[in-house]
Design a protein around this nucleic acid. Sequence first.
DNA 1: ATTGGTTATGTTTTT
DNA 2: CATAACCAAT
Length: 775
Amino acid sequence: MSRTQRESVNQVSIAARAAAASRPVPDYLTALNPEQRRAVEAVDGPVLVLAGAGTGKTRVLTTRIAHILALGKARPAEILAVTFTNKAAREMKERIAAVVGGQAEGMPWLGTFHSIGTRILRRHAELVDLEPSFTILDTDDQIRLAKQILSAENIDEKRWPARQLLGAIDGWKNRGLTPEEVPKSDGEWFAHGKGVHLYKLYRDRLKALNAADFGDLLLEPIRLFRNNPDVLESYQQRFRYMLVDEYQDTNVAQYLWLRLLAQKNRNLCVVGDDDQSIYGWRGAEVDNILRFETDFPGATVVRLERNYRSTSHILAAASHLIAHNEGRLGKTLFTDRVDPDAVPVTVASAWDSEEEARAINAEAESLQKKGVSLDEMAILVRTTAQMRAFEDRFVTTGTSYRVVGGPRFYERKEIRDALAYFRCVTQPAYDLAFERIVNVPARGLGQVSLRVVSEVARANGVPLMQAAADVLATDELKGKARSGLLGLLGAFDRWRAQLDALPHTELAEIILEESGYTDMLKADRSADAPGRLENLKELIRSMEDFESLPAFLEHVSLVTDAQGEAGEEAITLMTLHAAKGLEFDVVFLPGWEEGLFPSMRAMDENGQAGLEEERRLAYVGLTRARRQAFVWFALNRRLHGSWQASAPSRFIDELPEASVMVREDVGYGGIGGYGGSRFDKVETFSSSYHTPGWERAQRRREDVPRRERILPTLIEGELVARSIANGPSAFDVGSRVFHQKFGNGNVAAIEGNKLTVDFDRAGRKRVIDSFLTKA
DNA sequence: ATTGGTTATGTTTTT
DNA sequence: CATAACCAAT
C-alpha cells in the first residue's frame, strides 16, 4: 500500500472518529459493563484482556470488531481475527453479523491459526518450496510416512515408535523450529541421536510430496515472513487490527507468528484466561499471557471478573476447585445475581459406567419433563471412549443426542478410504492416497508387487500412479497383481474423464460402487459394516454442500468438527476440551474418578503441572453450566477391557461443601447404595420401567425390524440411501425421468441402480437412480 | 505371495 | 475391547 493511500485511510478514520464523538453512544456500547467497554474502546495499541469464564469474552471481541468497523478505522478485510477452533470462528462470524449486518461476510481473515496459515501459504507457496495446491496431511498419513522413513533408515519401529517420532517433530514445529534450529541435545534421545536427522528426512519427504502437516501450517508462515521481509511487510500493512481469542492456548509458533505481524502497528488485542489453559500437551504456553506486557510495553490490561453465566453455587464450586492450583494469575469471579432457586452442584455415584449412563439419561428426561430443552443439556466427558456407554443408552431409549468431536467423522477408516479414492482422481500425484487404496478392496496387490512399483517410482522420480502404469507396460507383474492394477488404473482414467461431466456427488457414488468398495462392505459380515455403509452415504450427502470434488477435499483437510446439524432437539455429548467456549443450562460431568479424571497419564508424564491442567479442565467443565451441574463417578469401570474398581476423583473433595449436595440414594438406577452386586442390575433395569425413554424404547421394539436397531442413529437420507439399498429399480425402461443437472430424458437401460438415460439436451449418460425423479 | 485368521498390545485431550 | 502386527495355510 502506498503512503498516500495510507494517509487517506487515516483521514477517513479521524473524520469518522470525530463524527462518532458527537453522536450519541451506540447501543452496542451501552449494553456493556465498564470493564468490557474499556476493552472495546481501547481500539489502538496493545490490549490484554484477562477474562474469566462467563464474563463476556466473546462479546467483547465481537463488539470490538463491530466498533472498529463502525468507527471506519478499518475495512473488514483489514482485520485479522484468530480463534482456536472452526466452531468458534463460525460463531464469531455470526455474532459480528448480528451487530454490524452483512459486513462480516467480507472478513476473509477471521479463522483459526491453521486455516489462516493455509491461506497465506497457498499464496506464497513457491517461497516455502511448495506448490499452491499442496495437500494437508492428517495423522494417518503422517504415521505412514514416518514408518517408511524409519524402515528406510533401518530403525526398529518396535523400539522407536513412529508416533513418538512424530510427537517430537510436532513439538519442534510447535516451537517454531526447523531441523537446523533444533538444539543439538534435543534430538539425542531418539534412536541414538538420530532424532533431528529423521526430522530433516521427514520434512524433505513432505516437500517432495507437495504436502504439509498441521505443524507446518504454523511453522512455514513464520519461515516465510522471516525470509521475505517484503511479504511480511505487506501483511503487516494489511492487518490494521488484530484480535486473538483463547490466547492462553497459543504455542510458541503461534506467538512468533503474531509477534511478527503485530510488531509494526502494535494494534493487537488478545483475550485469554490462564485458568482455562488446557492445551499444554499441544505445546500451549500460558507464559505467553505473562509475556505480553513485556513484549508490548504500555499495553492496556483489562480484567473481566463479573460472571454473567452461572449461579452462585456453580461459581463457588468452580472457584473453590481452581484455587487448589498454584501457578495462576488469580482472578476472582463474582456475580451479583440473586437466584432464589439456585441449586447446589450435585455429586452422585453409580455402580458402573452403564448405570452412570442410565441414570444421567433418566435425569435428563426428568429435567426435560420439567421444561428444560435437551438442547440446553450437555454431557462432558474426559475421554472419547466414555461416549460409548451414553450412545448405547441413548439409542436404546430413543433419546436424541448429538456428538461433537468424538471419533471424528473424517477419521473413520471407510471415510478416509473413500477420500483417498477421490483424491487419487483429482490429484493423481498424491502417493499417500494411492498407497492407501491400491489394495482396498483386495486386488491381489501385496507388499511385493507394491515394492516393484515404488522402486520404479523412486528410480524415475515419478508419482506412484505413473510408475504403476510404467510397470504395467512391462511384464514384470503377473497374474492377479497385473490384472488388479490394470483394472484400477483403467477405472481411475474413466473416473477422471467424468470429473467435469457428472455432478461430483454422483461421481463419488460411482467411484465407490465401481471400485468394489461398497460391495466389500456389503459382503462384510461384521457388526459395524452396515454402520460404515451408512457413514459413506452421510459423506456423500455432506458433499452436496460443495461446488466440486476439489472444493470438498480442501474443506475436509481443515475441518474436523462434525457439523452438528441443527433441527431436532438433542442432548449434546462431547469431550471437555471440545466444550470450551460453550455454555448450557444443565451440564453432566461423568467419570470423575482417579486415573480417568485426573487422567493417570497426564500426571505420570507431567507431574504437578499435568495435574493442574486436569484441574483446569474440571474448572472448564463446571463453568459451562448456567444453572445446574451434576458430577458423577462410577465405582467400577472397564479399562483396557477388564473391570477395575475406581476411586472418586480428588477433585470431588476439592469442591466446597456449602455448594454441593451429595445424592445418597442412587436415583433412577435404583440400586441401593454402593454394595450392589452386578446381579442387581436386572432389578435395576426393571425399576427404570417408567421413564419415558424406556417406554419409548419398548414401543420402538415392536415396529422396528431387528437389524435396524443395531444401526447408529443416523438420519436416513433419501437421496443416497435409495441408491445403495437393493431391490428392484423404481424406474422402467422407456419411462420419463428428471435429473438435477441434465434435465429431462428417457430411460434407455437399467443395470442395478445404474441407469442409462437419453437426455433431451445432454445426450446419453449413465447415472445412478437416486439422482433421478419420475418426470 | 497373498490372504485371512490369530495373537499380542495398549488407549487423553485437537488443529 | 479394538486395532495392529504376525503367522500359517493357500
